[in-house]
């Protein structure tokens, strides 16, 4: 059983894609494609994904279209040992979904409390940047949830992953990829 899972995982790596569930079948897609095709989320609610899209875009422009919500949703829906999230090496305790839910609830809660009931995704760009900047510095009064600076670190890393840590991302920055063993398709 394990070997089958592992082969599927490596196949995904080779294809630069992750296994998303579409109509009951697993298909390999990039997060960007999964978003574009409207692949249903498995763990995050629509509201949580909307918040994650918004905060991801605030942290790293392009993260929404690159599929940050589908990336995180897929990653927190598979066994922790298969996950590729930065959370894995930042000592977030599995299941990782718990952390993401708590972080997004904390961010939205702070937004609603400080902005007349408006969720984070409903804020203006300036307001979003202001709140995220305060979260980064642990300056959001009454913040309830995982520490704001840590939430910033984890979510920023995810946004960076989907936008820049791909072969296309390197190319966009003008950094030669120079792979030993190249991911065969752009990731």
């Amino acid at each position: 059983m394990y070997e089958i899972q592992r082969r599927a995982l490596l196949k995904g790596a080779a294809a630069g894609a992750l296994a998303f569930s579409v109509d009951g079948a697993d298909v390999l897609l990039t997060p960007r494609s999964a978003r574009a095709q409207g692949v249903p989320l498995r763990t995050l609610s629509a509201a949580q994904a909307e918040t994650l899209d918004a905060v991801g875009e605030t942290l790293v422009p392009g993260a929404r279209q690159a599929g940050i919500s589908h990336f995180v949703d897929q990653q927190i829906s598979i066994p922790a040992e298969e996950a590729l999230l930065e959370a894995r090496i930042l000592n977030v305790r599995p299941p990782y979904a718990n952390f993401y839910r708590a972080a997004l609830v904390a961010l939205n809660g702070a937004s609603e409390r400080l902005n007349g009931g408006r969720a984070f995704a409903q804020l203006s760009e300036t307001e979003q940047h202001g709140l995220v900047d305060n979260m980064r510095q642990n300056k959001v009064e009454g913040w309830q949830g995982p520490a704001g600076p840590f939430v910033y670190l984890v979510l920023r890393s995810d946004a960076v992953d989907v936008v820049y840590a791909t072969m296309d991302g390197y190319a966009g920055l003008g950094i030669p990829y120079m792979a030993h063993i190249a991911p065969t398709k752009r990731w």
């Binding site: 995982l9 490596l10 790596a13 922790a80 040992e81 298969e82 996950a83 590729l84 999230l85 930065e86 894995r88 090496i89 000592n91 305790r93 599995p94 992953d161 840590a165 791909t166 990829y177 120079m178 792979a179 030993h180 063993i181 190249a182 991911p183 990731w187």
Partner: peptide, 23 residues
């Protein structure tokens, strides 16, 4: 050694994913 794909993301597979540690 052939598992060591040159990717910041896929490279995380070789790091711990869970316990049994109490953090």
């Amino acid at each position: 050694l052939t598992d060591l794909i040159s990717s910041d993301i896929w490279g995380r597979r070789i790091k711990p994913a869970s316990g049994p540690f109490l953090l």
